[in-house]
Design a protein around this nucleic acid. Structure first.
Length: 346
DNA sequence: AATTCGGGGCG
DNA sequence: CGCCCAGAATT
């Protein structure tokens, strides 16, 4: 029995029941694939259910505000996915009359849809013969064929896409793609796979050469940078506060936060008070403050560690764009901020 | 080709 | 602590 048949038989016996596998609706499949980018199934699942419930069609998503989409996305990370989702939904509605692109070539033109996602939608929704190559597929192929080409290089990307294309079951591309990914997620998993029960154990090069824990090869990523964040939590007598949108490009773009002052290092109260906090709308030359957290709250991201302090500043008056603290949870915010909002007794 | 984008889970 | 996750866009 060949590679594809073994995988498909294994899949039929071991697959999980997942909601996006029960539909051919390209919009729903698209939503699931964007949500699942760099995200484990268990983490993405509740977000998928909420998005389907709140935005049942591409028209609902296109007509929504970006802020409400980001709010529903809150906590999932990589927020450009949500912004691109909205951009592409509007394109599909306004330019394609709501007709979803139905082939790889057109799908990959959508913002946020690259080779993997275009292949996934094209095969799952439209039965196009296009091989998916995600993290699972890299692992399965590199191990089974004993390939040590680094997967995060141009050469590796080309080599594995070509190999996957040569292996796909052209009669059932959707099932093959699901099968190889599920196999990577459950059987040929990153750590401590149980090769003794693997249906491919007799022909797996990595198992034979004891390379299972070595493959796939991945070039090391860059080191993390450290930053020091000081959030200014103003509170006036009416329990209003300042909460503003991050408009700059970069991390957490278009999410909301308290006014932020970065510093070179962690500040104590005296050093903080000496900061020249400049604001046209706010005279805070003489304010009283207290420190919410004595020790820095360390928020760790893939390539940044954020050492954070929240400074509570009680003032008599705030500019008119101040909002009631009760409404803070209506806005999309980074986990770092929303955790504070949920914790702090306003 | 290298970097940037989040957050959570796991050994 | 480092690596991984149904990757893509930007530099």
């Amino acid at each position: 029995m060949d590679f594809k048949d073994t995988l498909i038989i294994w899949y039929s016996a071991n697959k999980r029941e997942l909601p996006w596998r029960k539909t051919k609706n390209p919009y729903h499949i698209w939503l699931s694939e964007i949500i699942l980018q760099q995200t484990q199934v268990n983490q993405g699942l509740p977000y998928y259910e909420r998005f389907i419930a709140q935005y049942p069609t591409v028209f609902d998503l296109a007509n929504a505000s970006e802020t409400s989409i980001l709010k529903l996305w809150q906590g999932l990370g990589y927020y450009s996915r949500a912004r691109n989702l909205h951009t592409s939904a509007k394109l599909i509605v306004n330019e394609f009359d709501g007709e979803f692109p139905n082939n790889y070539k057109d799908l990959i033109k959508l913002k946020g849809v690259g080779d993997y996602t275009a292949s996934a939608i094209a095969s799952f929704a439209f039965n196009e013969v296009e091989a998916v190559v995600d993290g699972n597929v890299y692992r399965v192929l590199s191990r089974y064929f004993g390939i040590d080409t680094p997967i995060n290089t141009t050469a590796g990307i080309k080599e594995f896409k070509s190999l996957a294309t040569s292996l796909i079951d052209t009669e059932q591309p959707a099932t093959f793609n699901q099968a190889i990914m599920e196999f990577g997620a459950i059987q040929c998993k990153p750590k401590n796979p149980d090769c003794s029960i693997c249906p491919l154990q007799d022909s797996c090069v990595a198992l034979e050469k004891q390379l299972v824990e070595v493959l796939p090869v991945k070039l090391k990523k860059t080191k993390v940078t450290k930053k020091h964040f000081n959030y200014l939590v103003f509170i006036d007598p009416h329990k209003n506060t300042l909460f503003e949108q991050r408009t700059k490009k970069g991390i957490w773009q278009n999410l909301y936060q308290f006014p932020l002052v970065e510093s070179e290092r962690s500040l104590n109260a005296e050093e903080f008070h000496l900061l020249n906090i400049d604001s046209e709308l706010l005279d805070i030359s003489n304010f009283d403050h207290s420190l919410y957290n004595e020790a820095d709250i360390v928020h760790k991201l893939s390539h940044q560690h954020l050492y954070t302090k929240f400074w509570i500043i009680e003032v008599e008056e705030l500019p008119k764009e101040a909002i009631p603290t009760k409404t803070l949870t209506n806005y999309p915010a980074p986990v770092l901020i929303s955790d504070f909002i949920n914790e702090f007794p306003f």
